[in-house]
């Protein structure tokens, strides 16, 4: 770090890494993630099996400094668990400033953190990088959305939280007529339905071309709950193949935004 970091492939700094840390924890359902520093911003992606792909996206304007060399691709695999722990090294009650450095391909990712309330301490972390795995292309360009809903994140979180945990499968029913949006789960001998009509305050917008009944693994939908808890708004899109996309927006105080998205593959009927 004593060297001139202007030739580094990627450098960035932030006044407080707290929100970034929460966002990364929200997609931390796998040990490692693919770290990608794009000119527009930072994106980390995680996959579970071939069924769920989640990403955290932090646009460049969230950083006080953000620099990616335009002649290189900064993309590598890194331990998400370690990255999240390091960002949280001073505890969640503390705002700590963050600096990130990535010298060149094969270098470790370097983090330097300093808490705002204690000036006499700092932490530096070196996290080794690896070659990234290839990511699934879950959505083809020709695919269109059959249904799109905009929901208050807290409301969707409450609905998901209300679903019986022991159920395996969650059935999503979307229809142009009331009750519009229904979640059904089946227990041993029972059945539970949650209906959200279009007129509800919960649905900020709703459009649906035709009736759709799709099944997803409840476990996959529950993976979104941490992200829902820290976000303000979520857009649900259902494509013609049944691929579900949840796009979550986290609004920060200073009008900056961070995003997370989840692609979930439906269960196919046998």
């Amino acid at each position: 770090m004593a060297e001139d970091s202007s030739q580094y492939h990627f450098t960035a700094s932030m006044d407080s890494g707290k929100t970034l840390c929460s966002l990364l924890k929200a997609i931390q359902f796998q040990e490692s993630a693919v770290f990608c520093a794009l000119p527009e911003g930072l994106k980390l992606t995680v996959e579970e099996g071939k069924c769920v792909q989640a990403s955290a996206y932090i646009p460049a304007d969230n950083f006080t400094e953000y620099h990616v060399r335009d002649d290189v691709d900064v993309i590598f695999k890194i331990s998400l668990a370690v990255l999240a722990e390091c960002l949280n090294i001073f505890g969640s009650g503390e705002e700590a400033s963050l600096k990130m450095y990535y010298k060149c391909e094969g270098s470790p990712l370097l983090l330097v953190l300093q808490p705002q309330s204690f000036r006499n301490v700092m932490t530096d972390c070196e996290i080794w990088s690896q070659t990234p795995d290839s990511m699934l292309e879950l959505r083809s360009p020709e695919e269109t959305d059959v249904a799109k809903l905009v929901v208050r994140a807290g409301a969707l979180l409450a609905v998901l939280g209300d679903v019986e945990r022991s159920a395996d499968v969650l059935e999503l029913r979307l229809q142009p007529e009331p009750p519009h949006f229904t979640i059904v789960t089946y227990g041993m001998q029972d059945r539970s339905c949650i209906e959200v009509p279009e007129c509800s305050d919960t649905l900020q917008s709703f459009s649906c071309e035709r009736e759709l009944t799709l099944k997803y693994q409840l476990h996959h939908l529950r993976l979104c709950m941490k992200a829902l808890a820290i976000s303000n708004k979520v857009v649900l899109r259902c494509s013609s193949t049944g691929l579900l996309l949840l796009q979550l927006k986290l609004e920060r105080d200073d009008n900056k935004h961070m995003f997370s998205e989840f692609y979930i593959v439906p269960l196919l009927d046998d």
């Binding site: 409301a155 609905v159 209300d162 009750p179 001998q189 029972d190 059945r191 539970s192 339905c193 949650i194 209906e195 959200v196 009509p197 007129c199 509800s200 305050d201 919960t202």
Partner: peptide, 19 residues
């Protein structure tokens, strides 16, 4: 079945069909 139908805020309706 015994039906429990909860009418919640914001127009949300939760129905449980219990055997």
């Amino acid at each position: 079945k015994l039906i429990f139908c909860l009418k919640c805020k914001h127009g949300i309706v939760k129905t449980h069909f219990v055997s």
